[in-house]
């Protein structure tokens, strides 16, 4: 049973929310939040320790505070949060490696919960309609969060093998959408006009921030181990979503994605991630049977509700303003 929880990445939106949620939990004795940068938001009762998980100091915290559960959320979804793709990768992959090395030495540790992403399944025309947890990508992610998530999962699986005494649970979440949260998909829907692949219309699922927090909370307290897919019910296609948000679409040839990325940046439209193109073409669905049966989560919001909530009124301006303080025109 969780008693002392260490949460990494608490300066992120999800990390901060989890620190607050868990610190209000009477079952827990203490919640320690760790991040390389201090959080700008309220952390509740949680105690913040400024530490980079890439630094061996994290091991000391684990043993001194007698942490029994680690909730690893220190994974950045987009490269802009880190400054560049290489530092994103550094924080995501090297950070996880260091954290796992520290976890392996900590003898009080009983449980590790990590947030992975459904991007590990990739996107290809040979994909099944819905990926279950035991399936692997037909065409793996080429870069960005997808590739990092694959690497992170490999290290976590290795850790689980080497430390049989620690229960490991990984949640592969669909793209999480919530106020202030930036993902590649929310960046995409924040563009003034959406480049859509000509002749393709990928399907996607979303997960509301509240449901993501509920899933992580259940994973921290529960007994479930292994991989669990987490997503809201129902699906949307890219074009349907554009119509729901009243966004204009610009059909582009799928192969021209890098060009579109550069053009979007040149025109100052915002971020279009070329690696997303496969996803926009073929989309992805994940099966959430384990989420319901093993984790015991009933999402409160469907994919469409999450989307409409975030993008219906003035496409994502609210989201962007929450991040940039409304500086964007």
């Amino acid at each position: 049973m969780a008693n002392v929880v260490l949460v990494t990445g608490v300066s992120g939106v999800l990390g901060g929310l989890m620190a607050r949620t868990l610190s209000n939990d009477p079952q827990l004795e203490r919640v320690i939040g760790v991040d390389a940068v201090p959080p700008l938001h309220d952390m509740g009762r949680a105690q913040f320790v400024r530490a980079d998980i890439r630094n061996p100091m994290i091991g000391k915290i684990l043993s001194q505070e007698r942490v029994d559960t680690v909730l690893h959320l220190g994974v950045l979804a987009t490269s802009r949060q880190a400054g560049s793709r290489s530092s994103q990768k550094e924080i995501n992959v090297i950070g996880t490696m260091q954290l796992l090395a520290a976890c392996q030495k900590a003898d009080t540790l009983e449980r590790l919960v990590a947030k992975s992403s459904s991007t590990v399944y990739g996107s290809s025309p040979r994909d099944p309609a819905m990926f279950t947890e035991e399936m692997t990508a037909k065409r793996g992610a080429l870069g960005g969060l997808g590739k990092d998530s694959v690497d992170i999962e490999t290290y976590i699986r290795g850790f689980a093998r080497r430390s049989p005494g620690v229960d490991v649970c990984m949640l592969r979440t669909a793209s999480i959408i919530g106020p202030g949260l930036r993902t590649a998909l929310s960046d995409y829907f924040s563009l003034p006009a959406l480049p859509v692949p000509l002749g393709f219309d990928g399907r996607f699922q979303l997960l509301g921030l509240v449901d993501a927090a509920a899933a992580l909370r259940l994973a921290v307290h529960g007994q479930v181990t292994g991989i669990v897919n987490v997503a809201g019910d129902g699906m949307l296609t890219i074009r349907q979503a554009a119509r729901l948000a009243r966004l204009r679409t610009i059909p582009v040839v799928a192969q021209s994605a890098p060009l579109v990325q550069q053009t979007a940046r040149y025109l100052g439209w915002g971020q279009f991630d070329a690696e997303q193109m496969d996803f926009l073409c073929f989309g992805r669905g994940i099966d959430t049977t384990r989420m319901r049966v093993d984790l015991g989560l009933e999402p409160t919001m469907t994919t469409r509700e999450v989307f409409e909530d975030a993008f219906r009124n003035g496409p994502a301006r609210g989201l962007l303003d929450a991040v940039t303080g409304g500086s964007r025109a």
Binding site: R126, A129, M130, G199, D201
Partner: peptide, 24 residues
């Protein structure tokens, strides 16, 4: 899978109820 690789044809096929011929 050739159907779902092809532009237009693939997305039309999905909308009309087709999916990949694979056991899952």
């Amino acid at each position: 899978d050739l159907v779902f690789q092809s532009p237009l044809v693939g997305s039309l096929a999905r909308k009309a109820g087709a999916t990949l011929a694979a056991n899952p």
